[in-house]
Design a protein around this nucleic acid. Sequence first.
DNA 1: CAGAAAACGGAGTGGTCACTCCGTTTACCG
DNA 2: CGGTAAACGGAGTGACCACTCCGTTTTCTG
Lengths: 212, 212
Amino acid sequence: MPTAAATRSDALRNRAKLVAAARQLFAKNGVEVSVEEITRHAGVGMGTLYRHFPTKDELIDAVLEDAFDEIIGLAEEAAESADAWAGLTGFFERLLELHAQNRGVKDIVALREHGARRADAMRARLRPLLARIVERAHEQGTLRADFTPDDLPLIFWTANRVIELTHDVAPNYWRRYLALLLDGLRPAAATPLPAAPLTRAQLTRALGRLHR
Amino acid sequence: MPTAAATRSDALRNRAKLVAAARQLFAKNGVEVSVEEITRHAGVGMGTLYRHFPTKDELIDAVLEDAFDEIIGLAEEAAESADAWAGLTGFFERLLELHAQNRGVKDIVALREHGARRADAMRARLRPLLARIVERAHEQGTLRADFTPDDLPLIFWTANRVIELTHDVAPNYWRRYLALLLDGLRPAAATPLPAAPLTRAQLTRALGRLHR
DNA sequence: CAGAAAACGGAGTGGTCACTCCGTTTACCG
DNA sequence: CGGTAAACGGAGTGACCACTCCGTTTTCTG
């Protein structure tokens, strides 16, 4: 009776070393660090990396799994908040703090089609949570009525840009940007908007552009 | 009496062909088109390009000269507007329209240190004009008091990001974003901001990050 | 403890890019 | 025209990237 071959101990060890090295490097420099640098940090060869992960994106996916969970947690917490506006703004503050201290996070939303199983799953779980917060904020009259859940990526995209540009130089400047933008989302500030929100299909296609 | 050698006619012609080809390609695809593609479109060899322009950035600089002038023109027009708020918002609308139809424009602010003589000059001319508009809007009470001229790049940076991501898919979506953000800049919308504006030095360093 | 299967490492491949070098062609002057 | 300096073109260079291939080493099993 042929037992399904158990994974060898060195294989397990090396996989763990790779993930640990990648986690550290992604946090410091974003996912664009070269695979060569990752293997060097992990003390293994290129072949080892590509035996464990068919592609760099798959490694990214594996490394960012924790971050996925953390983000989902933030959204669940936000959805439970009695004050929907506070929940929404708090969610963005936390999410962007995460990005500010871990540059890998910014790419979570953006992983390429292929190695993005977990990222897709995360987005799918996130969507209804955020939709509910927006809906409840509308009901509570604390969010302008013409703002839709599909406008949310706008906040993430643009604040990420601010973080990328200013984090090394003024690590809290993004908070100023976020405050300015949020002030425009209050019902009292609303003036008629000149263009429609994105459709789901448009949003998906825009997501594809996130990679350079 | 040795006359200073007059430039040969073919050299002049080829230089013009290069600039024309680059202008067209930059507008359609942004400045990241390869030099090989530029020479192919111009119908000249690589050597010819690099005899006329010591570096790709110098070529970019030459090509975007017109756009520089156009932007300065927009700012002057805005500075003359009696209603400073209308001038400011109009300026950004026009500037971003320019970007939406000419992808090269987005890089104007960002040219690398070296081949950026003209870009630097443009920024230097732009700064006092924009500072005046902001000041007058403050006087007229149409812009929140805690918004400074050094916060203006925020609008450009973030709106550019929206254009890059959505232009092919929803060419006017950036207008929606701009409207949301501007609604946050009105005095009535203002809540206290959690972080200071960038200093001039910080701004300069952040500019350096614009190139990926 | 032996030998087969599994895992390893890292030089090598193929792609892209900006930029260079030099044999060939062209324009201009007398 | 004819000779010469200027300008030309494009294959080649080197740097970087993700990814592959295969001779060598390690682990585990009987």
